[in-house]
Design a binder for these strands. Structure first.
Lengths: 212, 212, 212, 212
DNA sequence: TATGAATGAGGTTTCATTCAT
DNA sequence: TATGAATGAAACCTCATTCAT
């Protein structure tokens, strides 16, 4: 059947969409397996999860880093795509927006078990994964931070990269350690950000401060 | 027969010191290699680092978990040994003591690259490593936290285990990511702890407030 | 989707014959190596003998016992498949049939050097090899023995298991010890069986001849 | 103490006796371990069994074959030392003497589990063990056989080497296979020997033949 | 001389990756 | 194009053997 398709001009296009669907299937499968067994999981497992042969994995992602980066780029895209002040609610303070974005970032990391851990793999090719995160998300986070700083709602001595890594780190083990409450600790961290905010002169509620 | 006796008992005593030195060399080497290449580093590398044969590693630490646990127990011992309020300086508030202990914990983790990461290995046998940390350090941290809570210096909704894991996590990548300032983020986290202390109504210095 | 279906099912069928041939090659190679170097021969040697990589051995036979059992099961099948009184010559006495089967069993063991030895390996997994022989061949031998006993041609105090092991044992070293004539000794053993046959009075006393 | 001894002439002799006792201890230990775990048993186990260091094993038996041969030579000595017609009871026929010697041989092999198996090891150095058995025992067995043949009590077509190996083989697994009765099968083999004795002219009871 | 710690070769097994089908 | 069998490098671990004490 495949050969018949190939003989036609249109077959090519039909194949393409098939292949694309297949790539997506692979990304999902890889994400699932990475979450379950870490980024070093046997390729065979990923192929099995996707219900394809190992050769297919290699066809779509020639090297393992290619696959890994693809898996996470896919997910980073979703986060970076988010317009900074997305919701557009003007009642929100910059700090609120920051908190909201961080919450979504945290949810993301906590949900995709293994993702946070993966960011620290020193396997070959993971620099690119890293670059991905840094290049895409740090700017977003940078804007959010700056806005809050400008509003006098948070301290100014925390750099976007620091915060991004810190949040990522706090999410490690969220699904592994029974008692560990990653989200709660991220909250505490954000509270620490707010605390010591230059302008919290007259009151201590660091996260409130509506009037800029 | 007398000669036999001598050799049996004497041999025991004669060799011990050498063997012990060797075990220590191995622990150091393993710590270094774990830091450099993670806890899954080839045993061969550890042996090479220590300048001994692989067999020697196995003689001293029959299974890999044995070695790993030994490496970290050694280091945990040092931390747990610290008397809670050790320094005895009565000018310090509970929060000061907490900060000081956390700083030392942080220094420790940051210094021993790889240690923090190791705490998250899901390799067989690492449960014991975990238990080690939890069993030994969580109680210490628990006391420090409670004292600060009792002094009204920090919020009461953070559990010792949460904090320990969070600190450990924040230290991950300290030596790997060029720009990441782990110690700084731990500071922020502690600030977040202090912030929201029940009733720091009239001033923001979180560590003062004696009266509740 | 249709293409996916095809690849899934069709791939299965296309490769089978190759894989099967390979498995057979492995069995032969393993038999040869076991014969030459015993059942503990390095897997590497077996792979080399078969002209395949080591991984291939493990693909087909995940554990060593799997391979060993397969090698010998293959051979046992041939023996057990033999209909007891197969040849169907009705001129044969039960003892003749017994002798004939034993001769074939002996030939088999003697030919496949190392097989007899293998039956005594105490390596893990060889219980199954054992069971294989016992379960498959002892019943056959039991029938042959009983028939001869019933015909009064052999003594009744030898159990099938005894005989099977004894024959197997006598074949050990057949290919190793220059001067040892295993077949001859099996003959002597069978003569011993016949000897002392109660009272094959009227006929074909194989070699008993009670009344001189 | 040892150095003091060495300085004297007599010390040498005292040492010698110690060493000899030690060697004997080693032989016993090795025999026990070989029986328990086969001739490939770890040297360490033998040293442990003997209660000495591994170095001591190597001092007395520089190579493994040296030890193995020594262990069994020791035991072969006992068998070969037996005067052929030892007991000198004149009521016994040559066949009786043969049977009696074989029984002792069998007992020996059956008792020392692993010995029979060891004779078939193809490990380096075991040729010597073999030579040992062949050189020492085959002549003895040859005499016994010849006497029985001369007396017309057994067939003449079984060579001493054949018989020795056959008996040895029949003893394999005596301690391993639950149901296997090695002694019984040796009996059957001997019966086979007697049966068909060419010269059993006037009586067929092969073991009777009183008048030599 | 006896000890047992150290060595390191060698066997086992697992996967990443290639490639015939 | 997809498959999964085959490959072989690399890690593990176990002793036989050496040698400092």
């Amino acid at each position: 059947m495949s050969s018949a398709d190939t003989s036609q001009a249109g077959g090519d296009r039909r194949k393409r969409s098939d292949a694309r669907r297949n790539a997506q299937t692979l990304l999902d499968a890889a994400a699932a397996v990475f979450a379950r067994a870490g980024v070093d999981a046997p390729v065979r497992d990923i192929a099995a999860e996707a219900g394809v042969g190992m050769g297919t994995v290699y066809r779509h992602f020639p090297t393992r880093p290619d696959l890994v980066v693809a898996v996470f780029r896919h997910q980073v895209d979703a986060l970076a795509a988010t317009p900074t002040g997305a919701s557009g609610e003007d009642a929100e303070t910059p700090y609120d927006v920051l908190r909201s974005w961080v919450a979504r970032f945290t949810d993301f990391l906590v949900t995709k078990h293994g993702l946070a851990e993966a960011l620290h793999s020193d396997q070959a090719g993971f620099e690119s994964l890293h670059a991905e995160f840094v290049d895409r998300l740090v700017p977003v986070l940078g804007q959010l931070l700056q806005a809050s700083v400008d509003a006098g709602q948070i301290r100014a001595d925390v750099r976007p990269l620091d915060l991004m890594i810190a949040i990522g780190n706090l999410c490690i083990g969220a699904g592994t350690f029974p008692g560990y409450r990653a989200r709660h600790m991220v909250d505490v961290l954000l509270a620490g950000l707010a605390h010591g905010a230059p302008a919290s002169t007259d009151g201590d509620e660091p996260r409130a401060r509506t009037g800029s």
